[in-house]
Design a protein around this nucleic acid. Structure first.
Ligand SMILES: [Mn+2]
Ligand SMILES: [Mn+2]
Ligand SMILES: [Zn+2]
Ligand SMILES: [Zn+2]
Lengths: 140, 140
DNA sequence: AAGAAGATGCAACTTTGTTGCAAAATCTTT
DNA sequence: AAAGATTTTGCAACAAAGTTGCATCTTCTT
């Protein structure tokens, strides 16, 4: 586990520090996305709030994580599966937000379908977020 | 114009007040979406910040406007075209965010395509936000 | 082991959003 | 048109979220 984490960091020319390791641990130790608040809670008093902000920002720039826009104005972050190096995310999968348990899930196997835009519009990025009830909550 | 606005308000059992009229004016007087901040700026010192928040909340509940999630954590609001009364939005169109001019546009004529989710996931709402360069910015 | 480069914590601050309450505006009824 | 009931507004106070500068500490390089 720790080796995996060190790999991620070194591959991205990042020094191996406590907060970076801990936050990557969190992402790897669960499936789904984390909001800034989640991370703060789970790291407890261990790190300063500012450090969490800065760490997430670095991970974003390096393409280690990506953001998921949600309707409630709270950005969620999730690990990029394939390596989206240098901020170039090729992250064309659908995201699912469960209204029951609140979890945000990357549906890596569901590709965002193409759409034909009106003439003149040039797309560079497409986001698709579906909300509803997730698999786990349905089964209960 | 003012008659249109009064109609919208009365149809939704809302009293006709300064802030409500002004904010609807803003929405009707331009195409595209407005962020809370935009509205505050354009109404100037005229209304209290709290009033703007509350007005948008009321419009949302009544289905007069809808929200558009964006990657930068700033909710945009846009008028609902067809009347989404009582908070039941049937708002299945694509939204476009221009990276040049920053404007957010409802592409009412572009319907969000369906996707097949993994078994167990039950969707209730689908959002699709495309960012890139808008028509106007391309033409320049 | 030492120095350079980078990351962290702290403090101070800004921006964004929320709540309770009294005053003001709007709507309803007469 | 005025009075009373109902809503809406502004203010103040607060909470939460995010940012910045800087000194100190940690990590990496040699
Ligand atoms: Mn994802
Ligand atoms: Mn729209
Ligand atoms: Zn769930
Ligand atoms: Zn544009």
């Amino acid at each position: 586990m720790h080796e995996v984490i060190e790999n991620i960091l070194k591959r991205n020319q990042l020094s191996v520090t406590g907060s970076r390791v801990r936050i990557l641990e969190l992402f790897l130790g669960q499936q789904g996305a984390l909001a800034h608040g989640d991370i703060e809670k789970r790291t407890g008093e261990k790190f300063d709030r500012v450090t969490v902000y800065r760490t997430l920002q670095v991970f974003l720039n390096k393409g280690i994580i990506h953001t998921i826009p949600t309707a409630d104005n709270s950005i969620r972050y999730a690990l990029c599966k394939d390596d989206c190096a240098g901020g170039h995310h090729h992250d064309n999968h659908v995201h699912f937000v469960c209204n029951e348990c609140g979890s945000t899930i990357c549906l890596d196997e569901v590709t965002i379908p193409g759409v034909k835009l009106p003439i003149g519009f040039e797309p560079t990025q497409v986001e698709m977020v579906i909300s509803g009830v997730c698999k786990d909550c349905r089964e209960k």
